[in-house]
Amino acid sequence: MPESKTLGDRTRGMGEIVEVAGKVTELAPFGNTLAEMAASRPEIVGLTADMGRYSDILPFRDAHPDRFFNVGMAEQNLIMIAAGLSKVGKIAYCTTYSVFITRRAYDFVAIACAHSKANVKIFAGMPGLVNGYGATHQATEDLNMMRGIADLTIIDPCDATELKQVVRAVADIPGAVYVRNLRGKVPVELPADYRFEVGKAKVLKEGDGDTGIIATGYMSARALDAARIVAGEGRDVGVLHVGTIKPFDRAGVLEFARRHKRLIVAENHKTTGGLGTLVIEALYDAGICKPLSRIGLADGFFECGSQEYLEAKYQVDLPRFLEVIREG
């Protein structure tokens, strides 16, 4: 089992996913990719609501200062300005924390962006428990909220490899997009030949047809870690990564589900309203009934603490994955 870097009781720096010993990481994949691609795409602009440092957009600011705007702590205005920029031909990448976009600027995302099919690409930081500052900073219901908005694409990338592809891909996905951004030293988990496709779930590992894990975000990487560990116990677990939450790849999920006897759905989000709910709806609508376990957060507001502490306390850590797999 990979060993977590010891942090004691300290909470980590704002919004950096926990760095695990032995794993390769890449620094600021979002900002560096955006800066690079914007060099040949003058229509790209970047915005933040006083969260430039903590959203990794600073490489873009440094490379393209004339196209970077910090609107201050004003998330409604962030989204309005981004929508306005898009309506005169720009592709507006904007950043702040997930909680502030979803809870403070919901109407503006729905009406000024999604309803107008505005080219606003929201990179929302610190999804789920990727933050030690408690419920004010933890977006644990953002997928539930955002999937209620029509014409909004929602993406929950697994790692640096996928995130970099997503940064490029969303520029050409028409309309508004919400991405759960990962910042800091982001682990490289997926193979170099992994290819993100919007709206397509990807089988990361084929199993023997007994247990299949359907996951999103960095929980897909945790599922792979767990699968590697239980392989030594004679269990061959399949892993499906649902990188796009909306539009939801119903066909891909059903195809994977049909090939497995029991399913585990894992997400860095509450177990209601997110991936778990989407999978169950799809299965029920298709008349499929199988044993299904959910790994995710119970309903509640979550306390402050290190990511390791919180993940263990709220049962989304690697030992929890192993426990659920071994139940089958």
Binding site: Q76, N77, M80, A83, K87, V88, K90, F108, A112
Partner: peptide
């Protein structure tokens, strides 16, 4: 713009003015 949810106009106007100036 889609009007009607009040308080949406001026911010979008600011964004449009910024974008037009970039061009």
């Amino acid at each position: 713009i889609v009007g009607g949810s009040l308080g949406h106009g001026l911010g979008q106007a600011v964004g449009m003015a910024m974008g037009l100036r970039l061009d």
